[in-house]
Protein backbone atom coordinates (compact mmCIF):
# COMPACT_ATOMS: atom_id res chain seq x y z
CA UNK A 1 0.00 0.00 0.00
CA UNK A 2 2.99 2.24 -0.01
CA UNK A 3 1.94 3.41 -3.46
CA UNK A 4 -0.62 5.78 -2.07
CA UNK A 5 1.74 7.05 0.59
CA UNK A 6 2.76 10.44 -0.63
CA UNK A 7 6.30 11.69 -0.36
CA UNK A 8 5.06 14.58 1.75
CA UNK A 9 3.32 12.37 4.25
CA UNK A 10 6.26 10.02 4.34
CA UNK A 11 8.58 12.88 5.15
CA UNK A 12 6.37 14.03 7.97
CA UNK A 13 6.50 10.55 9.39
CA UNK A 14 10.26 10.33 9.28
CA UNK A 15 10.68 13.48 11.28
CA UNK A 16 7.85 12.38 13.54
CA UNK A 17 7.97 15.74 15.15
CA UNK A 18 4.27 16.08 15.82
CA UNK A 19 2.75 18.69 17.99
CA UNK A 20 2.12 17.15 21.38
CA UNK A 21 -1.47 16.52 22.23
CA UNK A 22 -2.32 18.24 25.49
CA UNK A 23 -4.95 16.47 27.50
CA UNK A 24 -7.07 18.47 29.93
CA UNK A 25 -4.94 17.26 32.80
CA UNK A 26 -1.69 18.33 31.12
CA UNK A 27 -3.06 21.76 30.31
CA UNK A 28 -4.30 22.17 33.86
CA UNK A 29 -0.97 21.20 35.37
CA UNK A 30 0.85 23.53 32.99
CA UNK A 31 -1.30 26.45 34.06
CA UNK A 32 -0.91 25.73 37.75
CA UNK A 33 2.85 25.70 37.33
CA UNK A 34 2.79 29.01 35.49
CA UNK A 35 0.13 30.83 37.46
CA UNK A 36 1.06 31.23 41.13
CA UNK A 37 -2.33 32.61 42.08
CA UNK A 38 -4.27 29.60 40.90
CA UNK A 39 -1.63 27.29 42.38
CA UNK A 40 -2.17 28.98 45.75
CA UNK A 41 -5.92 28.60 45.27
CA UNK A 42 -5.51 24.91 44.51
CA UNK A 43 -3.33 24.39 47.58
CA UNK A 44 -5.82 26.16 49.85
CA UNK A 45 -8.72 24.15 48.42
CA UNK A 46 -6.80 20.93 48.82
CA UNK A 47 -5.89 21.71 52.44
CA UNK A 48 -9.47 22.62 53.29
CA UNK A 49 -10.61 19.34 51.71
CA UNK A 50 -8.06 17.39 53.74
CA UNK A 51 -9.02 19.21 56.92
CA UNK A 52 -12.68 18.50 56.27
CA UNK A 53 -12.07 14.82 55.60
CA UNK A 54 -9.85 14.34 58.64
CA UNK A 55 -11.75 16.78 60.89
CA UNK A 56 -11.93 14.46 63.94
CA UNK A 57 -8.14 14.07 63.87
CA UNK A 58 -7.32 17.68 63.08
CA UNK A 59 -9.67 19.40 65.51
CA UNK A 60 -7.99 20.02 68.89
CA UNK A 61 -11.19 19.38 70.87
CA UNK A 62 -14.69 17.98 70.41
CA UNK A 63 -16.87 20.67 68.83
CA UNK A 64 -19.76 19.71 71.12
CA UNK A 65 -17.67 20.11 74.28
CA UNK A 66 -18.72 23.16 76.29
CA UNK A 67 -16.22 25.45 78.00
CA UNK A 68 -16.48 28.90 79.49
CA UNK A 69 -18.56 31.13 77.23
CA UNK A 70 -16.99 33.74 74.97
CA UNK A 71 -13.40 33.14 75.97
CA UNK A 72 -11.19 35.38 73.79
CA UNK A 73 -8.70 33.85 71.34
CA UNK A 74 -5.44 32.43 72.62
CA UNK A 75 -6.74 31.35 76.03
CA UNK A 76 -6.83 28.14 78.01
CA UNK A 77 -9.62 26.37 79.84
CA UNK A 78 -9.19 24.02 82.74
CA UNK A 79 -10.99 20.71 82.20
CA UNK A 80 -11.18 17.39 83.98
CA UNK A 81 -8.54 15.83 81.75
CA UNK A 82 -6.11 18.72 81.62
CA UNK A 83 -6.01 22.00 79.79
CA UNK A 84 -7.76 22.97 76.51
CA UNK A 85 -6.24 25.65 74.29
CA UNK A 86 -8.63 27.95 72.43
CA UNK A 87 -6.74 29.34 69.48
CA UNK A 88 -9.77 31.32 68.25
CA UNK A 89 -11.67 31.52 71.53
CA UNK A 90 -15.08 30.07 72.40
CA UNK A 91 -18.56 31.09 71.37
CA UNK A 92 -21.72 32.07 73.20
CA UNK A 93 -22.42 28.45 74.13
CA UNK A 94 -18.84 27.85 75.18
CA UNK A 95 -17.93 25.73 72.10
CA UNK A 96 -14.35 25.93 70.80
CA UNK A 97 -14.51 28.08 67.67
CA UNK A 98 -11.44 26.60 65.96
CA UNK A 99 -12.79 23.08 66.23
CA UNK A 100 -16.21 24.15 65.03
CA UNK A 101 -14.74 25.89 62.01
CA UNK A 102 -12.91 22.66 61.16
CA UNK A 103 -16.06 20.59 61.48
CA UNK A 104 -17.99 23.35 59.71
CA UNK A 105 -15.71 22.89 56.70
CA UNK A 106 -17.19 19.40 56.36
CA UNK A 107 -20.74 20.63 56.09
CA UNK A 108 -19.91 23.67 53.98
CA UNK A 109 -17.78 21.82 51.43
CA UNK A 110 -20.07 18.80 51.32
CA UNK A 111 -23.10 20.97 50.75
CA UNK A 112 -21.27 23.01 48.10
CA UNK A 113 -19.93 19.98 46.20
CA UNK A 114 -23.12 17.96 46.26
CA UNK A 115 -25.19 21.02 45.38
CA UNK A 116 -23.06 21.82 42.36
CA UNK A 117 -22.97 18.16 41.33
CA UNK A 118 -26.76 18.06 41.45
CA UNK A 119 -27.13 21.31 39.52
CA UNK A 120 -24.45 20.19 37.04
CA UNK A 121 -26.14 16.88 36.26
CA UNK A 122 -29.66 18.23 35.95
CA UNK A 123 -28.66 21.45 34.22
CA UNK A 124 -26.44 19.65 31.73
CA UNK A 125 -29.19 17.20 30.86
CA UNK A 126 -31.66 20.04 30.32
CA UNK A 127 -29.19 22.11 28.31
CA UNK A 128 -28.16 19.16 26.13
CA UNK A 129 -31.72 18.21 25.27
CA UNK A 130 -32.79 21.81 24.67
CA UNK A 131 -29.79 22.68 22.51
CA UNK A 132 -29.65 19.46 20.54
CA UNK A 133 -33.31 18.93 19.74
CA UNK A 134 -34.34 22.57 19.47
CA UNK A 135 -37.95 23.29 18.52
CA UNK A 136 -40.65 22.92 21.13
CA UNK A 137 -38.42 20.88 23.46
CA UNK A 138 -36.03 23.83 23.55
CA UNK A 139 -38.85 26.32 24.05
CA UNK A 140 -40.41 24.35 26.87
CA UNK A 141 -37.18 23.66 28.76
CA UNK A 142 -35.72 27.11 28.33
CA UNK A 143 -38.93 28.88 29.33
CA UNK A 144 -38.75 26.92 32.57
CA UNK A 145 -35.10 27.91 32.96
CA UNK A 146 -35.94 31.56 32.26
CA UNK A 147 -38.69 31.42 34.81
CA UNK A 148 -36.25 30.12 37.37
CA UNK A 149 -33.55 32.55 36.32
CA UNK A 150 -35.86 35.45 37.01
CA UNK A 151 -35.94 34.43 40.68
CA UNK A 152 -33.07 35.51 42.92
CA UNK A 153 -31.22 32.36 43.94
CA UNK A 154 -31.61 32.86 47.67
CA UNK A 155 -35.30 33.65 47.54
CA UNK A 156 -35.94 30.58 45.42
CA UNK A 157 -33.91 28.43 47.81
CA UNK A 158 -35.71 29.91 50.82
CA UNK A 159 -39.01 29.20 49.10
CA UNK A 160 -38.05 25.60 48.40
CA UNK A 161 -37.04 25.11 52.05
CA UNK A 162 -40.27 26.69 53.19
CA UNK A 163 -42.26 24.33 50.97
CA UNK A 164 -40.30 21.27 52.08
CA UNK A 165 -41.09 22.31 55.62
CA UNK A 166 -38.00 21.22 57.54
CA UNK A 167 -34.41 22.19 58.08
CA UNK A 168 -31.48 19.90 57.30
CA UNK A 169 -28.49 19.29 55.10
CA UNK A 170 -30.45 17.41 52.42
CA UNK A 171 -33.01 20.16 52.11
CA UNK A 172 -30.32 22.81 51.77
CA UNK A 173 -28.62 20.77 49.05
CA UNK A 174 -31.85 20.36 47.10
CA UNK A 175 -32.86 23.98 47.54
CA UNK A 176 -29.53 25.50 46.45
CA UNK A 177 -29.03 22.79 43.82
CA UNK A 178 -32.35 23.49 42.14
CA UNK A 179 -31.63 27.19 42.23
CA UNK A 180 -28.37 26.62 40.32
CA UNK A 181 -29.79 24.43 37.56
CA UNK A 182 -30.44 27.36 35.25
CA UNK A 183 -26.79 28.44 35.16
CA UNK A 184 -25.66 25.06 33.88
CA UNK A 185 -28.61 24.62 31.56
CA UNK A 186 -27.94 27.94 29.85
CA UNK A 187 -24.22 27.36 29.55
CA UNK A 188 -24.59 23.85 28.14
CA UNK A 189 -27.34 24.89 25.75
CA UNK A 190 -25.27 27.69 24.27
CA UNK A 191 -22.31 25.35 23.88
CA UNK A 192 -24.46 22.70 22.23
CA UNK A 193 -26.00 25.21 19.84
CA UNK A 194 -22.60 25.94 18.36
CA UNK A 195 -21.22 22.41 18.63
CA UNK A 196 -24.15 20.68 16.97
CA UNK A 197 -23.42 22.55 13.72
CA UNK A 198 -19.89 21.15 13.61
CA UNK A 199 -19.15 18.82 10.76
CA UNK A 200 -18.09 16.01 13.06
CA UNK A 201 -21.62 15.97 14.42
CA UNK A 202 -22.97 15.72 10.87
CA UNK A 203 -20.44 12.94 10.32
CA UNK A 204 -21.73 11.16 13.42
CA UNK A 205 -25.27 11.41 12.08
CA UNK A 206 -24.14 10.16 8.70
CA UNK A 207 -22.69 7.13 10.45
CA UNK A 208 -26.09 6.42 11.98
CA UNK A 209 -25.12 7.24 15.55
CA UNK A 210 -28.02 7.59 17.99
CA UNK A 211 -28.88 11.02 19.33
CA UNK A 212 -27.93 10.00 22.83
CA UNK A 213 -24.51 8.84 21.80
CA UNK A 214 -23.94 11.99 19.75
CA UNK A 215 -24.85 14.16 22.72
CA UNK A 216 -22.76 12.27 25.25
CA UNK A 217 -19.75 11.19 23.22
CA UNK A 218 -19.43 13.81 20.48
CA UNK A 219 -20.83 17.04 21.91
CA UNK A 220 -20.41 16.95 25.67
CA UNK A 221 -16.65 16.25 25.74
CA UNK A 222 -16.14 19.40 23.70
CA UNK A 223 -18.09 21.47 26.19
CA UNK A 224 -16.30 20.03 29.20
CA UNK A 225 -13.73 22.81 29.51
CA UNK A 226 -16.26 25.55 30.11
CA UNK A 227 -18.24 23.23 32.36
CA UNK A 228 -15.27 22.59 34.61
CA UNK A 229 -14.63 26.31 34.85
CA UNK A 230 -18.28 26.88 35.62
CA UNK A 231 -18.17 24.25 38.37
CA UNK A 232 -15.20 25.87 40.08
CA UNK A 233 -16.90 29.24 39.91
CA UNK A 234 -20.19 27.87 41.22
CA UNK A 235 -18.75 26.10 44.25
CA UNK A 236 -17.89 29.30 46.13
CA UNK A 237 -21.33 30.67 45.27
CA UNK A 238 -22.83 27.51 46.73
CA UNK A 239 -20.74 27.92 49.87
CA UNK A 240 -22.00 31.49 50.20
CA UNK A 241 -25.58 30.39 49.52
CA UNK A 242 -25.39 27.74 52.24
CA UNK A 243 -23.88 30.26 54.65
CA UNK A 244 -26.55 32.81 53.78
CA UNK A 245 -29.36 30.31 54.28
CA UNK A 246 -27.87 29.29 57.62
CA UNK A 247 -27.41 32.92 58.52
CA UNK A 248 -31.09 33.50 57.82
CA UNK A 249 -31.96 30.53 59.97
CA UNK A 250 -33.14 28.52 56.97
CA UNK A 251 -30.17 26.21 56.70
CA UNK A 252 -29.21 23.24 58.77
CA UNK A 253 -30.47 22.58 62.32
CA UNK A 254 -29.24 25.18 64.80
CA UNK A 255 -26.74 23.02 66.70
CA UNK A 256 -24.92 21.80 63.58
CA UNK A 257 -21.54 23.50 63.22
CA UNK A 258 -21.60 25.43 59.94
CA UNK A 259 -19.87 28.65 59.05
CA UNK A 260 -23.05 30.50 58.21
CA UNK A 261 -24.73 29.52 61.45
CA UNK A 262 -21.68 30.50 63.50
CA UNK A 263 -21.64 33.85 61.78
CA UNK A 264 -25.29 34.36 62.62
CA UNK A 265 -24.93 33.35 66.26
CA UNK A 266 -21.96 35.64 66.71
CA UNK A 267 -23.81 38.55 65.18
CA UNK A 268 -25.70 39.53 68.32
CA UNK A 269 -22.50 39.66 70.39
CA UNK A 270 -20.41 41.45 67.80
CA UNK A 271 -19.76 44.39 70.16
CA UNK A 272 -18.63 42.27 73.09
CA UNK A 273 -16.93 39.34 71.31
CA UNK A 274 -15.80 40.11 67.76
CA UNK A 275 -14.11 36.72 67.32
CA UNK A 276 -17.43 34.88 67.32
CA UNK A 277 -18.33 36.00 63.82
CA UNK A 278 -15.04 37.28 62.38
CA UNK A 279 -13.29 33.88 62.25
CA UNK A 280 -16.07 31.91 60.52
CA UNK A 281 -16.31 34.87 58.16
CA UNK A 282 -12.61 34.55 57.39
CA UNK A 283 -13.00 30.85 56.72
CA UNK A 284 -15.73 31.55 54.17
CA UNK A 285 -13.72 34.31 52.56
CA UNK A 286 -10.54 32.27 52.21
CA UNK A 287 -12.29 29.29 50.62
CA UNK A 288 -14.30 31.47 48.26
CA UNK A 289 -11.20 33.39 47.19
CA UNK A 290 -9.27 30.17 46.70
CA UNK A 291 -11.97 28.71 44.46
CA UNK A 292 -12.19 31.90 42.46
CA UNK A 293 -8.42 32.07 41.96
CA UNK A 294 -8.38 28.44 40.92
CA UNK A 295 -11.35 28.93 38.59
CA UNK A 296 -9.68 31.90 36.90
CA UNK A 297 -6.60 29.79 36.30
CA UNK A 298 -8.71 27.04 34.78
CA UNK A 299 -10.41 29.52 32.54
CA UNK A 300 -7.04 30.57 31.15
CA UNK A 301 -5.88 26.97 30.87
CA UNK A 302 -8.92 25.91 28.86
CA UNK A 303 -9.04 29.12 26.91
CA UNK A 304 -12.64 29.75 27.84
CA UNK A 305 -13.64 33.29 27.05
CA UNK A 306 -14.72 35.40 29.96
CA UNK A 307 -18.26 35.89 28.74
CA UNK A 308 -18.83 32.21 28.09
CA UNK A 309 -19.34 31.15 31.66
CA UNK A 310 -21.76 32.97 33.85
CA UNK A 311 -20.15 35.12 36.46
CA UNK A 312 -22.44 36.16 39.21
Amino acid sequence: MSTSQSPIDAKADEIDDVEEHLTLRKRLWGTLKRDKKSMLGAIVILSFLLVAIFAPYVAPVDPEQEYGIMEPPNTHSETADGEAYHLLGTDSYGYDIFSRIIFGARISLLVALVTVLFAFTTGTAIGLAAGYYGGWIDSLLMRYVDFQWAFPTLILAAGIIAVSGSLGVINVIIAVGVAFIDDFARLVRSEVLSLREKEYVVAARAIGMSDRRIMIKEILPNAVASLIVQVTLMIPIAILAEASLSFLGLGVRPTTPTWGLMLNEGRQFITQAWWLSIFPGFAIMIVVLAFNAFGDGLRDAFDVKEGEVLDR
Binding site: E199, Y200, I207, G208, M209, K217, P221
Partner: peptide
Protein backbone atom coordinates in the same frame (compact mmCIF):
# COMPACT_ATOMS: atom_id res chain seq x y z
CA UNK B 1 -21.23 7.65 3.51
CA UNK B 2 -20.00 11.22 3.42
CA UNK B 3 -16.62 12.94 3.07
CA UNK B 4 -16.37 16.55 4.14
CA UNK B 5 -14.85 19.71 2.78
CA UNK B 6 -12.98 20.82 5.89
CA UNK B 7 -11.14 17.76 7.12
CA UNK B 8 -10.24 19.20 10.52
CA UNK B 9 -13.73 20.29 11.52
CA UNK B 10 -15.14 16.95 10.46
CA UNK B 11 -12.99 15.15 13.03
CA UNK B 12 -13.85 15.43 16.71
CA UNK B 13 -10.88 17.24 18.33
CA UNK B 14 -11.25 15.27 21.57
CA UNK B 15 -11.01 11.83 20.00
CA UNK B 16 -8.06 9.84 18.78
CA UNK B 17 -8.00 8.60 15.21
CA UNK B 18 -8.72 5.13 16.54
CA UNK B 19 -11.85 6.35 18.33
CA UNK B 20 -12.98 8.31 15.28
CA UNK B 21 -12.62 5.46 12.81
CA UNK B 22 -13.92 2.72 15.09
CA UNK B 23 -17.06 4.68 16.06
CA UNK B 24 -18.99 3.70 12.91
CA UNK B 25 -18.06 0.07 13.47
CA UNK B 26 -19.23 0.25 17.09
CA UNK B 27 -22.52 1.84 16.07
Amino acid sequence: QLIFQDPLSSLNPRQTVNEIISAPMEV
